[in-house]
Amino acid sequence: MAQEEQVGCARPTGGLVGETAPEEPMSDTIKPVKEKTMLTVGQKVPDFSAPGYHKGAFVNVTLSEYLGKWVVLCFYPGDFTFV
């Protein structure tokens, strides 16, 4: 599933699959309004790719690699937290 990744000094991070770089705002006065929205049940979830750690290796995981399986995706505030 997950591909092993070469490790450099930079800290790679995750991102959405197929998303283009954000456009520059057209002017100082007109700024694109980005509404914060929650996902809707019954709809497709956004695909993403993210680096990670899995059983002794650094890996890169793309959500769509798990099509055909049930996935539990958990977010949490931070490593070494207490809950």
Binding site: F48, S64, V71, V72, L73, P77
Partner: peptide, 30 residues
Amino acid sequence: NVGKAYGVFDEAAGVETRGRFLIDPDGILQ
């Protein structure tokens, strides 16, 4: 970036909240 797309990123604190998503084999959020 992923947390923002899923609506669980707390901008003020700069961390993700405790979001848990069940995704079926077709990639549909259940």
